[in-house]
Design a protein around this nucleic acid. Structure first.
Lengths: 209, 209
DNA sequence: AAAAATTCTTTACAACGTAAATTTTATAAC
DNA sequence: GTTATAAAATTTACGTTGTAAAGAATTTTT
């Protein structure tokens, strides 16, 4: 009888398929891509992909997870930059922006429509956790180094949320690349200033609005 | 001959259609809704909607614009709250969160997939500008009142980006409603502290990370 | 060479958005 | 009151979609 596909054969085909699919997704949007298009580029019949993925959505999820992993790798690499925690922190932030600017479509693929549905896909949840981890971890470094003061997890979420929000404005075409960089720097500074321990005497009363 | 539809007849039908469509979009997601479903709820044939909208995407845009207007109205109402600029500022922020919490699907409809494509729809662009205006305007009030210091436009963008980012985490199921409120308050305080004019003597050197 | 299991292809189907053709409907003219 | 007319609505029809089911091809084991 015909031999079963080996683990690596399956993995190879899946990877090839995801590559093709991502290119198409980026080019035409997720809904604008058909299974038949993917199959054509793969030079197989329209039904063959179904032996490797249950359905179109699973392909989308796999592509998303892969993109998220690429994103995480970039952040992690930035975190390994040589220098002070502050310098490394800046590197991570820059890497985030850089990814969004260089691969806006991948970024959109990753973060658009992020519904809790993700929970049904452990693969995606793991990839998500990975990127989140880098962002909070490096905030811990900053707090430990005394650059910022407060709960690292809280600060991390706020910082990340702000960054994501700014990138969103960029994606929506409301601000350009330069503005994005400037605003991000200003946000970073403002948050850092706001989260710094006071020079001790008279704790400044912050009448937050 | 049969009389032409009056302006108001058209407007009425369009509104009715948008109501139905929004409910369906919220229920099944934009791609999960079919023209035939909309028509069925309207008790007309599948093709009748095409007399009132060019195609499905135009319906989606109309629904989106309407939701954005509702959102703007809420923000504007909050801005008319009685009290100090700080109090009114807080009211606007709360209104933003409240809308996201009460109508998460409307919020998603508004802000998901916000691609520059919006520019092709003046209706949408206008609705967008309206909501953005409220958000930056009230930041001007805060700066004028001395609650914060800096360029109002910049501060506004940063603040809204942060708010949007936090709501996104909420939408993605990463944080709950309570956490969202707490984090938002903390972000507000941190940004406000970071953007406050120093008590003058020795301008604090901010070693932003 | 035959059998058998597994991969891949072909065929088929219901549902989609919507173009084109057709029918219904409400007025104006006689 | 009938008829002509044009707008509105429906019916029909077409090309595509995701994918289920059936069939053909392929490679090992017997």
């Amino acid at each position: 009888m015909r031999p079963q596909l080996t683990e690596t054969e399956i993995a190879d085909f899946r990877r090839r398929l995801c590559d093709v699919a991502e290119r198409l997704f980026v080019e035409h949007g997720v809904e604008g891509v058909t299974m038949r298009q993917i199959a054509e580029r793969l030079e197989c019949s329209a039904m063959t992909p179904y032996r490797y993925f249950r359905n179109k959505n699973d392909i989308f999820v796999a592509v998303r997870a892969a993109a998220l992993d690429r994103f995480s790798e970039r952040l992690e690499a930035a975190r390994r930059t040589f220098g002070s925690p502050a310098r490394r922190g800046r590197a991570v932030g820059d890497a985030y922006l850089q990814f969004a600017i260089e691969e806006p479509d991948a970024y959109r693929l990753i973060f658009d429509l992020s519904q809790p549905e993700d929970a049904n896909y452990p693969e995606l949840a793991a990839a998500n956790a990975r990127s989140r981890k880098t962002m909070t971890d490096y905030m811990e470094d900053l707090v430990a180094a005394g650059v910022m003061d407060g709960d690292p997890k809280t600060l991390g979420l706020i910082y990340w949320a702000g960054t994501h929000g700014l990138v969103n404005l960029f994606m929506a075409g409301k601000i350009g690349e330069g503005e994005l960089r400037v605003l991000h720097r200003q946000m970073t500074q403002t948050l850092a200033r706001g989260a710094q321990r006071m020079p001790d005497q008279k704790p400044r009363r912050t009448r937050a609005f």
